[in-house]
């Protein structure tokens, strides 16, 4: 695998987050029935950043926020060599009648989102669910799932790997694309 190539640098990265927050505010205006839910673990980081921006830009501070772990809902359980480590699910409210904004960093095969939607059902019947992702790898989907809000779109082959890095975790906000060397394909 090559060294990662930066496809979104810090400045445009933050502009993209800013745009996503405005798009979400444009849709919902009033956030009293809305809850923002991040998928563990990288989706939660994006969700927290977007939540702060939305609160700041919409001047609404009491937006419901939750974290969703999908480990126990994954369909690739047991087809993996080793099990995935579960994280915490922190949704201490019912989703009945809520408008859910589901957030993940990279939308790839769509399987995580599929698992997340089954997991959400166990917390009540949401009135709507919308999907936000920072990176959409649109040509690699396995399931008929698409995001409602997209940061950037990346067209890459299956063997490539996209990573979102965060300032407070990895040192800088950026999106990296790792592609295999030609002979490895």
């Amino acid at each position: 695998m090559s060294r990662g190539r930066t496809i979104l640098k810090s400045k445009p990265f933050n502009l993209t987050l800013e745009r996503l927050s405005h798009q979400i505010i444009e849709t919902y205006a009033d956030f009293s029935e809305v809850c923002i839910i991040g998928i563990q673990e990288r989706g939660v980081v994006l969700a927290e950043r977007l939540l702060a921006l939305i609160q700041n830009n919409s001047k609404q501070n009491n937006i419901t926020f939750g974290k969703l772990d999908i480990t126990f809902y994954r369909d690739d359980f047991r087809s993996r060599e080793t099990p995935l480590k579960a994280s915490q699910t922190d949704i201490n409210f019912s989703l009945d009648g809520k408008k859910v904004v589901l957030i993940d960093d990279v939308l790839y095969t769509g399987r995580s989102v599929h698992a997340a939607m089954s997991a959400l059902q166990d917390h009540g019947r949401a009135s709507t669910i919308e999907l936000v992702c920072l990176v959409d790898r649109r040509f690699n989907r396995h399931l008929p799932i698409k995001a409602d809000y997209v940061g950037i779109t990346v067209d890459s082959i299956d063997e490539a790997y996209v990573k979102v890095e965060w300032e407070h975790i990895d040192g800088a906000d950026k999106v990296l694309l790792f592609t295999p060397k030609r002979e490895q394909i």
């Binding site: 126990f72 809902y73 915490q88």
Partner: peptide, 23 residues
Amino acid sequence: FETAKNFKEVINRPIKKVPSLRD
């Protein structure tokens, strides 16, 4: 223990079930 902590959260939900071992 780590895993049990997560399951303890699951069994305190209104719907106390996950599909992990369905097969």
